[in-house]
Design a protein around this nucleic acid. Sequence first.
DNA 1: GCCCAGGGTGTTT
DNA 2: AAACACCATGGG
Length: 277
Amino acid sequence: MAASDLNLRQTLFCGQCFRWEENPDGVFSGIAFGKKCVIRQEENKSLTDDPIWRTYFDLDTDYGFLQKRLSGISPVLSEAVQYAPGIRILRQDFWEALASFIISQNNNIPRIRGIIARLCENFGEKFNDGYAFPEPQKLLGLLPEDLSSLRCGFRARYLLDAAQKVCAGEIDPVSLQKMPLEKAKTQLMTICGVGPKVADCVLLYGLHRMEAFPMDVWMKRAMKTLFPGMKPEDFGQGAGLAQQYIFYYSRQHPELFLEKNSLKLSDSKKFCSGRKL
DNA sequence: GCCCAGGGTGTTT
DNA sequence: AAACACCATGGG
């Protein structure tokens, strides 16, 4: 029962992770916690048998209950839930989530995937036909130019600062897990290159803090158009999950925002310099 | 608070 | 061909 509602495509391509692939024959493959997974949607029930994947796909959480509660908040949210009921918030490795979302800033998904792939190929352990995500220790003592092969630009020094703080224990997932959300967020933001948005992503995807609500450009647009006047807190405990349904729904329905996009070119120009929407 | 740069890629005009 | 947009942030 637990795994039957897991949809691999919705879960693995809703923007929360960057290392999974779907082959044309419907086979999903990915690596997490140094282990490779190759699986088809029809076989997803077998994931409950392996503790690693049972945890990774959050199969012990009752999403039906959460969905029901969220759906009661607003008809639009109910529709977003119905659109992708098979989404689950993955329990990813903390460091992988931290590094990945530092890389993700002001960036597009194809390029994020490329940078992370090169990070693993260059610094991760090879096994079978893939590479593990490199431990932060692998980046210790390096200079930004040592990461030039990643072509991650200005994000290189951010990655190095994150690795240094994690290795030094200044950033510790175990203690972050116990802290109140805002305190953990403040703590994460002491890393150079981690602002409010990246911190919320790390809290949600790397520490499974379901209250965290990452606000990226798409979410700002979606909130304005679909939930005028509503704030993240209005979604309650499962705000992060609500965010994921809304994010996925919005990305799959860009036409909902076309009017806004073409409204003012001068406005979208301003986006890259910081403020918009 | 305001404004700009930083890097590269996919997408739109 | 050129401009735009991108799962933001740091620094002046």
